[in-house]
Design a protein around this nucleic acid. Structure first.
Length: 562
RNA sequence: AACCCCGUGGUGUAAUGGUAACACAACGGUUUUUGGUACCGUUAUUCAAGGUUCGAGUCCUUGCGGGGUUGCCA
């Protein structure tokens, strides 16, 4: 049911192709794949690809459709096992499962090598002696054809023995490469005899020292797809120019199936940094406290920040799949998060910046009354809880104003406001220290206002509070967007547009007692404030630290700031 | 100025030759013991010009604008 609701209501152009291939009988089922390179953490951009690939498999499950998780580990210089587990974890968290279909491009190194040999024998590939520098020069430019390498027409037998020597480690890094023999005059530079294999004397995280030659992405990717029976190989726009090569290889090799590559535009949320290189710089430069810092665009960061997986899936559904390079307004993400959390998060009262209120006419002798508070108005099954009210409470400093503007519904001298789920109180006196800062507000309460409106007057405001007798103190981390400009990559130096206030650390916030036992990862709505999540790094049992995921919409604050 | 891709409200997506729709944002309002939620209203003749057609966002042509491509990265 839920899954069905989550599937796209209209079909995007890729799903359109998938179903027409099913209807035409071109394919009996659909096989997709998500092919991360294990050289970094997954970010929200990857979520789109994950939702697309796994989503299509899910939607076509009745035909036996599946989505493979395949690690694209063709470059031992950059890849590490550490990332493999983190990536798996993130995909599972997002709600997807590859079943038994876990693969590595490196699983196919033997097959890939054999096919390379067959290409050489057919004169469709050759070992080139040119250096990297020379290859670049020979390639030509966007407007001029390239030049053929002197090695291009050498005897296939010679290429073959050279290739064997490459594999056997007879050459140093970069001394020789295997190139496809296509067309040095092709308008598409990728077709000007692209490199298929390079020499890299590096340990591979899975194959160890078995190989010292490694296939390039172009050579490995499509063939891996074909081996696995992938029907639709979905990738981002920057691979568009590689498609002719992808097709050339699949056509010129005895591969067991013919996958089709289709490109779509990446997800680019505004105010986010997505580039892997910059993400590394943020971590290594100490701008954040790790890959899972809640200011990061990584899935682990978003998770720690409190963004529900369902919200990210919802965002991916909303932005759709096209070839148009769009920028997604972060407001769409915020909305998806609020929509999800509004349905699911328990309401609690927490006072971030507390100021003391004493109720002067409250019964003497430590009198306490239990108030009934709704856990989630959107979910009757969530029930209610009791919160204790005493004669001393804390309210939000911003819920009091000496000299309020018109239509201010909160507390001010002589004004009346409701303590949420409780009585109405009236401000009688404000106590200040010598610097004029408020240290206490003296109020009276109206015992006739519990569960009903006062007679003859209207009290419009209701503010949240925590009783001084049983509330506890906690640290709160207020997160905001990490950058001050929509597109931080467009800046000369992204460091200059870091939002210095992306994290405000607050200590001494007052929390209602039921929050004390909250577990890492648990999400709450702090009423009238925002959605908060128990931090998984800094919390210790009995002493939770709260991350603000996103504030509640605030039409009053918005009106005032104008 | 080689080749490829893309142009629909502020943003993102839909309309598959037949009344330009939905979501978000913004603004205004209703309800409300969360200034939350919910609900209602306002905001575009589809980059331009020609053409085909009874009819074009959709098909054709030419422009214009944006993006990509000269790794032994993926």
């Amino acid at each position: 049911m839920a899954k069905q609701q989550e599937s796209a209501s209209q079909k995007d152009f890729i799903r359109e192709i998938v179903s027409s291939d099913l209807h035409s009988g071109k394919h009996k089922t659909t096989v997709t794949r998500f092919p991360p390179e294990p050289n970094g953490y997954l970010h929200i951009g990857h979520a789109k690809s994950i939702c697309l690939n796994f989503g299509i498999a899910q939607e076509n499950a009745s035909t036996g459709a599946r989505c493979h998780l395949r690690f694209d580990d063709t470059n031992p210089a950059k890849e590490e096992t550490e990332y493999v587990d983190a990536i798996k974890n993130d995909i599972r968290w997002l709600g997807y499962d590859w079943g038994e279909h876990l693969y590595f491009a490196s699983d196919y190194f033997d097959q890939l090598y054999e096919w390379a040999v067959s290409l050489i024998k057919e004169g469709k590939a050759y070992v080139d002696d040119l250096s990297a520098e020379e290859i670049r020069e020979y390639r030509g430019t966007l407007t001029e054809a390239g030049k053929e390498s002197p090695s291009r027409d050498r005897d296939p037998e010679l290429s073959l023995s050279l290739f064997t020597q490459m594999k056997d480690g007879d050459f140093g890094d970069g001394e020789k490469v295997l190139r496809a023999r296509i067309d040095m005059g092709h308008a598409n530079l990728n077709m000007r005899d692209p490199v298929l294999y390079r020499i890299l004397h590096k340990e591979h995280h899975r194959t160890g020292s078995k190989w010292c030659i490694y296939p390039t992405y172009d050579y490995a990717h499509g063939q891996s797809d074909a081996i696995e029976g992938v029907t639709h190989s979905l990738c981002t726009l920057e691979f568009e120019h590689h498609r002719p090569l992808y097709e050339w290889l699949v056509e010129n090799l005895p591969v067991p199936s013919r996958p089709r590559q289709i490109e779509f535009a990446k997800l680019r949320p505004s105010y986010f940094l997505m580039s892997k290189r910059r993400l590394v710089q943020m971590v290594e430069g100490g701008h954040v406290d790790g890959w899972d810092d809640p200011r990061m665009s990584t899935l682990s960061g978003l998770r720690r920040r409190g963004y529900p997986a369902a919200a990210i899936r919802s965002l991916c559904r909303t932005v759709g799949v096209t070839k148009y390079k769009s920028v997604t307004d972060v407001a769409l993400l915020d909305h998806a998060v609020r929509e999800e959390l509004n349905k699911t998060a328990m309401r609690r009262m927490a006072v971030i910046d507390p100021v003391r209120v004493s109720i002067t006419n409250w019964p003497e002798g430590g009198h306490v009354e239990l108030m009934n508070a709704v856990n989630n108005p959107e979910d009757p099954d969530a029930g209610t809880r009791e919160v204790a009210l005493s004669g001393e409470v804390f309210i939000e400093r911003s819920d009091f104003m000496d000299d309020p503007p018109k239509k201010y519904y909160r507390l001010s001298p002589g004004a009346e406001v409701r303590l949420r789920y409780s009585y109405c109180i009236r401000c009688e006196e404000v106590i200040r220290d010598k610097d004029d800062a408020i240290i206490e507000i003296k109020c009276t309460y109206d015992p006739e206002t519990l569960g009903k409106n006062p007679e003859g007057r209207k009290v419009r405001g209701a503010i949240h509070w925590v009783s001084a007798t049983d509330g506890f103190e906690a640290d709160v981390r207020l997160y905001d967007r990490s950058f001050m400009v929509e597109d931080p990559v467009a800046e000369d130096d992204w460091r200059e547009v870091i939002n210095a206030h992306a994290l405000i650390e607050v200590s001494g916030s007052k929390m209602e007692p039921s929050l004390q036992g909250a577990n890492p990862g648990e999400c709450f709505q702090f009423e009238r404030n925002g959605y908060f999540c128990v931090d998984s790094k800094y919390s210790i049992p009995g002493k939770p630290v709260f991350n603000r995921t996103v504030p509640l919409r605030d039409s009053w604050g918005k009106k005032r700031s104008k």
